[in-house]
Design a protein around this nucleic acid. Structure first.
Length: 684
DNA sequence: GAGCACTGC
């Protein structure tokens, strides 16, 4: 099509391809193509791209304390490097520990490595994730989640059991990754015999090598601490195309690009990235208009976003019939979490929706911002998995060049009270001076310290209090929920509070179907559990009903609930009950239907997050007077407004919305948090 | 009347 080509220019040099070749394998692919799947395990190991780097890796580890391994997951580094170290005898200096960001990959990798060694997992190769442990005295290669290593640090601050630590997927820069890296830096300076391997994406390698460098004295003064090692990957080349001029409406531009691509380009499926559900649905409608204008339709358009039911999501994994092209309009879910097969063309709108913590209002904002280069590269890489592909970026080459290298890491965008508590428990007195890989805004740390002080977890000097502070640091959830649990032990309703906490740990239990009719039925079904006290008591009701009805899928189907999440909440609940009783000595009693008691415990955790009904008819934050609204997802949205409520979280979108809302009585505030609420500050 | 996406102790 003549009108199509001039819109995009191909960069004159191919350095855009070289630097943006998509050399990043998704972290947690649902599908990993293995060309050697019918070879024996030994031959498979020999054929992996990483094999030819083995001696180099071992050499670097002999000579440097920190090795930064740059390359993709498909290169086999997560499974092979631990084995190379073991085969070379590194385990004689202590265990080889590998941290992973997720439970599933931890278990899968351990199983795979054990299998390659012809052993059962739990022997030489073991793993530890929350609630699951497969290790023995013979375990020398130990896979674990980052959270587990952090917990081990509490008992063994110098990690004396370990000779080498491998931090896998470090470029993800989760909150825990950053905590672990900051703490490891401290340890490495004290223990010169501890080695660290960081697995990273290209874009972050220099950052890590700068972070892991510090002055040394004597003969070693000029010797570098870290070294970078790049491992080539197996991706196909991706050609990059840009707009000549910025576009005004990227949803429309996406649709037009899909259509032109479809007319002009050879077969191959299309994946388009948009920022949210609303845009995906809008683009679907626009594209349907194009399709309706044609006589024959050989284009299959599919949406893909997180809140779709998993059944609807499955549609994108099917191969379309011959002669039909599949177009997937997706949110960021397709960037790393889900790998859609058959994609040859990618359209990148250039924006992403992110959550951002605002310490002045203690709320999260949901904002649309330009993507980072790392994301743009990751998105483009989705086109090069099956054969050479093409990416169409709906912005100019100049705009691309000006993009930030990466999104600020999670730790800089999040509420910090949990992290601060952890650091305090590890003996780091002044968290403002802790060496974070990317320091969070001081404001975020100060706001976390204020919260912890209000919860009575730290004293005026910033020291952890006994018993509350130390208990809160040990409990595996947020400081406010931990406080709630602590108080519930004293008030005799820990059973109910543990249920509520477990329900809050899992993703939403409410199913939200795509069709309008089903949405309406779902809403009516959910009303069955709703109570005037609010969302947390509603969750309590759902849990009881689920258990009473035999925890069946049928029950969930009938009431539009997500079985998978409810079942996980029940498992979590059982384990929390055990943990609270055995490890923390919390008395587990049920208040047997005394709802007021449960609401009081909720208040004891959330008392810093209170809103009162202003005479103008809107809610205001009690501490600041800021206007707040009940989130439409809350059960209280449709009920008459109560005078006082506490909330679990604030989200800024079109308004400042309160979520997880519970109705309270004003008197409880001065009763449960007298140090925080002087009688006079509680308004009527 | 509104919902980027995840993960962990």
């Amino acid at each position: 099509m003549a009108t199509f080509k001039p819109k995009f220019i191909k960069p004159e040099t191919d350095d855009a391809i070289a630097d943006g070749g998509g050399n990043q394998e998704p972290q947690n692919s649902a599908f990993v193509f293995n060309a050697n799947h019918n070879l024996g395990l030994v031959e498979q190991r020999e054929r992996l791209p990483i094999r030819k780097y083995r001696d180099q890796i071992l050499y670097c580890l002999e000579n440097f304390q920190v090795v930064i391994l740059v390359g993709e997951t498909g290169s086999g580094k997560s499974t092979q490097v631990p084995q190379y170290l073991y085969e070379w005898g590194w385990h004689s200096k202590g265990m080889i520990g590998i941290t992973e960001p997720r439970r599933v990959s931890t278990v899968t990798l351990a199983n795979r490595v054990a299998q390659e060694r012809g052993e059962l997992v739990g022997d030489t190769v073991g793993y530890v994730v929350r609630f699951l442990e497969r290790t023995s005295n013979d375990t020398h290669i130990k896979f674990m989640t980052e959270g587990i290593l952090l917990r081990e640090l509490l008992a063994d601050p110098l990690l004396t059991q370990y000779g080498v630590i491998i931090v896998d997927e470090a470029h993800e820069r989760n909150m825990l990754t950053d905590m672990v890296l900051g703490l490891l830096k401290k340890i490495l300076r004290k223990r010169s015999n501890l080695k660290l391997i960081i697995s990273s994406a290209t874009i972050d390698a220099s950052f890590f090598s700068e972070f892991f460098s510090w002055p040394r004295s004597g003969a070693e003064a000029n010797q570098l601490i870290s070294v970078k090692l790049s491992i080539e990957g197996r991706m196909h080349a991706v050609s990059h195309f840009y707009l000549n001029e910025p576009c005004a409406d990227y949803v429309r531009e996406t649709v037009e690009t899909v259509w032109k691509l479809h007319q002009k380009e050879p077969p191959g499926d299309i994946l388009a990235f948009l920022t949210g559900q609303e845009e995906v649905l809008e683009a679907m409608d626009l594209l349907r208009e194009y399709i309706a204008s044609q006589e024959t339709t050989n284009l299959k358009v599919l949406p893909m976003y997180g809140s779709m039911t998993s059944n609807d999501q499955l549609a994108v994994f099917f191969t379309p019939p011959k002669g039909v092209r599949k177009v997937v309009l997706a949110t960021n879910i397709a960037e790393t979490s889900i790998t859609i097969p058959g994609i040859v063309y990618v359209i990148d709108c250039g924006y992403v929706k992110v959550k951002w913590y605002n310490p002045t209002t203690c709320s999260d904002s949901l904002v649309v911002v330009p993507v980072s280069k790392a994301s743009a590269i990751q998105r483009a890489g989705r086109a090069g998995r099956v054969r050479p592909g093409k990416v169409y970026r709906l912005y100019t080459k100049q705009d691309y060049d000006a993009l930030a290298p990466r999104q600020p890491p999670e730790l800089r965008r999040s509420e910090m009270s949990g992290a601060v508590l952890q650091l305090k428990a590890l003996g780091i007195g002044n968290v403002l001076r802790f060496d974070f890989p990317s320091p969070p805004p001081a404001q975020n740390l100060l706001s976390a310290l204020e919260t912890l002080y209000a919860l009575d977890a730290i004293d005026e000097q910033g020291e952890l209090t006994r018993p509350v502070g130390f208990l809160l640091a040990e409990l595996p959830f947020s400081a406010m929920l931990s406080k709630m649990l602590y108080v519930s032990g004293q008030m005799g309703c820990a059973e109910e509070i543990i249920t509520i906490i477990a329900m809050l740990q899992v993703q939403s239990v409410f199913s939200r179907p795509a069709s309008a009719a089903a949405q309406q039925s779902g809403r009516i079904a959910h009303r069955h559990f709703e109570v005037a006290e609010g969302d947390l008591i509603t969750l309590l009701n759902i849990h009881s009903a689920f258990v009473e009805e035999g925890m069946t899928k049928e029950f969930c189907g009938q009431y539009y609930l997500i079985y998978r999440n409810l079942k996980r909440a029940c498992e979590l609940r059982e384990q929390l009950l055990n943990l609270a009783r055995k490890k923390y000595g919390i008395a587990i009693f049920s208040c047997k239907g005394d709802v007021e008691m449960v609401c009081k415990c909720i208040t004891a955790g959330f008392f810093t997050q209170v809103a009162y009904l202003h005479h103008s008819g809107v809610y205001r934050q009690i501490s600041s007077g800021t206007e707040l609204a009940i989130h439409p997802n809350s059960t209280l949205y449709t009920l008459p407004q109560a005078q006082y409520v506490v909330y679990g979280e604030l989200l800024q979108t079109t308004k400042l919305f309160m979520n997880h809302v519970t109705v309270i009585k004003k008197e409880w505030l001065t009763e449960l948090a007298p140090h925080y609420y002087q009688q006079t500050t509680v308004r009527d």
